[in-house]
Design a protein around this nucleic acid. Structure first.
Lengths: 132, 132
DNA sequence: TAGATATTGAGACGCAGTCTCAATATCGAT
DNA sequence: ATCGATATTGAGACTGCGTCTCAATATCTA
């Protein structure tokens, strides 16, 4: 199960993890997968990401500190590093009075392919913004 | 309704917004509030935040770019500014090939009061970590 | 082998949010 | 003012994600 997560570099949702695990182990129950996922997170073997508000939780086997770039159209997520200087963290802590544990930066934009589609879209169709 | 949001500085969830609106307008339906909230967001009058994975969406009338510090215990959120240098954004864009629209930084930690409670907790009870 | 304990899967459940649709309100023309 | 067209509303059904419950099964220990 961790293997599945490690093999996946697309930050799958729990549902996707479930599907993939089922390919190897057809009978497995959803509860088990959700449970195990939580255990992995608790044990520090995986992380949960909240990428975007309506979106469901996504899992990442990359446990080291890193950030994400997220495509607003297709939802693709990629890892990036955008470390804040240690000073910034310390400043933030003293400024807010919080005891800071971690942070991450989330960039939102359009991936190259969605970007292309988007330009075409808005050229042919300036006013209407939903549908097809 | 926007007034409610502007008056609220605690980044309320949709449900909280609903409650508060109902104080002034008892008969209002949930659908209307959710709808209006989405409209406000679409119109750029409000923002949605995804603070933490299991959490429900929270709304913020502060539309300018800013970041958040979030308490992992009580969920309190406060605004902070942690602007990235313009260079960093441009670098990130060229490095990833994404067309970046926005970003934000999310700090997680413990607010002063939860922090106090937490220390006391872990002193009296080092092994057990859940329950009372 | 027998009993105690832990893990599992099916399905019930809960919750946030969305959709549907009939009822009501608003607007515009006459 | 009156009528009809259009837009907005609220109640409640519905959906999807995730959790809880619980009986069945597996594992472990003596």
């Amino acid at each position: 199960m961790l293997d599945v997560l490690i093999a996946a570099h697309d930050h799958p949702t729990a549902a996707q993890v479930l599907d993939r695990v089922r390919e190897h182990q057809p009978g497995i129950g959803a509860a088990t997968v959700y449970r195990t996922l939580s255990l992995l997170v608790e044990a520090g073997q995986a992380r949960v990401l909240s990428l975007g508000e309506g979106a469901s939780a996504r899992y990442d086997a990359n446990v080291s500190r890193h950030d994400h770039v997220l495509c607003v159209d297709c939802g693709a997520a990629m890892d990036v590093a955008a470390p804040l200087p240690a000073r910034a963290l310390a400043d933030m802590a003293s400024r807010t009075g919080y005891d800071l544990i971690e942070y991450d930066v989330q960039f939102r934009g359009r991936c190259p392919s969605c970007n292309k589609a988007h330009r075409k879209q808005s050229k042919t169709n300036e006013k209407r913004n939903r549908s097809v």
